[in-house]
Amino acid sequence: MRIDIISVVPGLLEGPFSHSILKRAEEKGLAKVQIHNLRDYAIGKQKQVDDYAFGGGAGMVMMIEPIAKCIEALQSQRTYDEIIYLTPDGATFDQVMANELSLKGNLMMLCGHYKGVDERVRQKFITKEISIGDFVLSGGELAAAVLADAIIRLIPGVLNDETSALTDSFQDGLLAPPVYTRPAAYDGMEVPDILLSGHQAKIEDWRFEQSVRRTKERRPDLLDRE
């Protein structure tokens, strides 16, 4: 998989992709994340990427010309399965969407800033609009990092144990069950006997029951979607 991310402040994305699972995925040749500075495609000597909104109002708007030049330059090199715009009014990102996107080959992400992008960018180039929640960030960079992490970890071979991602919260519409590790007893608190029994079928039944219980208690809305 290759993910190209267009940003006005690319420095915000350097950290997330230079550590842990995302770095490992790139070292294994399973995923490549490339950050593109929109100012490299900016207008005039001032490297302008934003301007005042027609009709007035507070805040600046990202201009169409620099974005169009950047997207078209990238499209001349490869075909993209999706061109994603990170925006608060997009579809809410969830595990189902992460699973679907993890099957793609080439993704492009455009990070919004200021009061957003010229609407014509969305009309002409964007194929998918995504939000990571009902709140507003200073820009789409952190949202892009969240998407990339959630997607890349699902690619076969990225995680050492490929079954790990399949047992994450939300994969089956439920929250994950409680987990324990050594020591078996600590400060009067003990690991449930079933987990020490060695009866794998009974353990799986217990985990499912715990997932359902935890979901009912903490996220009953997930059960209502069924």
Rank of each mutant, 00 (worst) to 15 (best):
L103C: 11
A143I: 11
G105W: 01
L147P: 04
V146N: 09
E217M: 09
I3A: 07
H19V: 13
D161F: 01
L159A: 07
Q171P: 00
V8C: 14
L13V: 04
E65Y: 00
A150V: 05
D89C: 00
S20F: 08
R182A: 03
V191N: 06
L223N: 12
G57D: 03
G188V: 10
S138L: 13
G198Y: 02
S197Q: 10
G188I: 12
S76E: 15
R78N: 09
P192R: 06
P10G: 01
R218W: 02
D221R: 09
D205A: 15
R2F: 07
Y52H: 13
Y186L: 13
A184L: 10
M97F: 00
L166I: 01
Y114S: 06
L86P: 06
V212F: 05
E209K: 15
L101F: 09
Y180A: 10
S20R: 07
P220A: 03
Q171L: 00
I203L: 01
S138R: 07
D168S: 07
E204V: 02
M1P: 06
A25K: 08
F54P: 13
V158P: 09
P177C: 12
S169E: 07
S197I: 10
E190R: 13
L147I: 05
D50K: 03
R225K: 15
E27R: 14
R24Y: 01
C111N: 04
D168P: 01
I155D: 04
A58R: 14
G15N: 12
Q210Y: 00
A176D: 15
P192W: 11
G90N: 02
P88K: 06
N160T: 14
L174D: 05
G173M: 04
A68L: 09
Q171H: 11
R207N: 08
T181V: 07
G173I: 06
T181K: 02
R122Q: 11
M97I: 15
G11A: 09
L175W: 02
Y52I: 14
Q95E: 07
F54N: 02
L223W: 04
F93H: 11
I155T: 05
